[in-house]
Design a binder for these strands. Structure first.
Lengths: 210, 210
DNA sequence: CGTGATGGATAGTAGCAGTATCCATAAACG
DNA sequence: CGTTTATGGATACTGCTACTATCCATCACG
């Protein structure tokens, strides 16, 4: 398969494929002559994965690269794979909230975490995001939303278990790793859109005349 | 309050405030002389809201503008406010999946929606995202994740009800509208980070040695 | 052999979210 | 009152990201 066919098979423009090759997202094809390479089925699958992460989940290209690298080296423990997927989903945040607000939010968040019995390392990127978010909601006068944090956590735990269940059906470690990463990232988009749909239909009934 | 104090009160640099003023995100201050304006408490709150949407929820500035405009005009029905918030959360997507894949995904998705008894208009931005995502998961060989779609929908519905509940405690229509918009958008970040934390702790126990 | 694709390198682009600079005026301080 | 500092408003510039476009010296194919 040459680059043009790869392009036709996936719908990705040739220059874009070249760009991914340059950036190391897509492994080089096998050179049959100094300036002629051939690509195979793995390239097609890899390219589809890249596009799904970039287009559907809006993951930055640089992060996609990191994720793919860790998927390729089976030396990386599963736990670290998940960590990278998480980092891909949680952009670096410079603290927005005031110190007191963050202090208070952190207290509530750690309270919820321990009451749910979760074990979370204090470095987890999602932790700072959650704290910042709670602090922001408070600052914006949306305390009523925050009071339900515990209930949210419970509901969220429920479908997270479902996901882990679904992903665990994979036989090999490599497939498991890939599933975990894809599930973590595309699952985010999946749940987010389900939420919006649920919201639309519940709110439609509730506030028809407002 | 002059612009410097506004900046100190919110931690937002003066040039950035000027930028938001230019872009119409932040209403002009009251001019006390041809080149001197004064800002008030509403500006502080508005600025905090802008920053929360931009920094925490990563909403593009242009969308924030749209949302704020619809919040300001009480002529916009609540339902349309929600629509705008949803559009802020679902970037324009050009179709990625093949026609057959999308067809199949659409069938499953509408199945889930009707089995849950949701009423969703076919134009809903989240609907196309969901369909694309399901199609992508299938194409990537992650059917096991997709088979749980119904169960996900149920779990998601549960906490969406919680959110609607929380938001409904607002007395006035204006406050309700603001809460709905903030809740929709920051709630996304909130749930997303809760999910990642749950994932981390559940998966840590499950795959310790992989 | 001529036409068109290819690999590889380098340069250019569009959009986004600010930053930086200027300037004429106003405010605050000594 | 004079000097330093801040302000409103306009315009220009920057850094980053994700591509696109162009070139050119080969290949491949009919």
């Amino acid at each position: 398969m040459r680059i043009g066919e790869l392009s036709r098979a996936t719908g990705v423009p040739v220059p874009t494929i070249k760009y991914y090759l340059r950036e190391g997202l897509l492994p080089q094809g096998e050179l049959t002559s100094p300036n002629q390479a051939s690509y195979g089925e793995p390239h097609v699958r890899r390219l589809r994965l890249i596009r799904a992460l970039v287009e559907i989940a809006q993951v930055p290209v640089a992060q996609v690269k990191e994720i793919l690298e860790s998927l390729d080296s089976d030396a990386v423990p599963l736990h670290e794979q998940i960590g990278r997927a998480h980092r891909a989903l949680t952009p670096r945040r410079k603290p927005t909230a005031s110190d007191e607000a963050r202090e208070a939010a952190a207290a509530q968040v750690t309270g919820v975490i321990s009451s749910r019995g979760w074990s979370v390392e204090p470095e987890a990127p999602a932790l700072t995001t959650l704290i910042e978010t709670v602090a922001a909601l408070r600052t914006l006068g949306q305390d009523n939303l925050v009071t339900f944090l515990d209930a949210y956590a419970e509901a969220v735990e429920r479908f997270t278990e479902l996901e882990i269940e679904a992903v665990s059906t994979n036989p090999t470690r490599d497939q498991l790793a890939e599933s975990v990463v894809i599930g973590t990232i595309l699952g985010e988009t999946l749940i987010s859109s389900l939420r919006l749909l649920a919201q639309e239909s519940i709110s439609a009934n509730r506030w028809k005349k407002l």
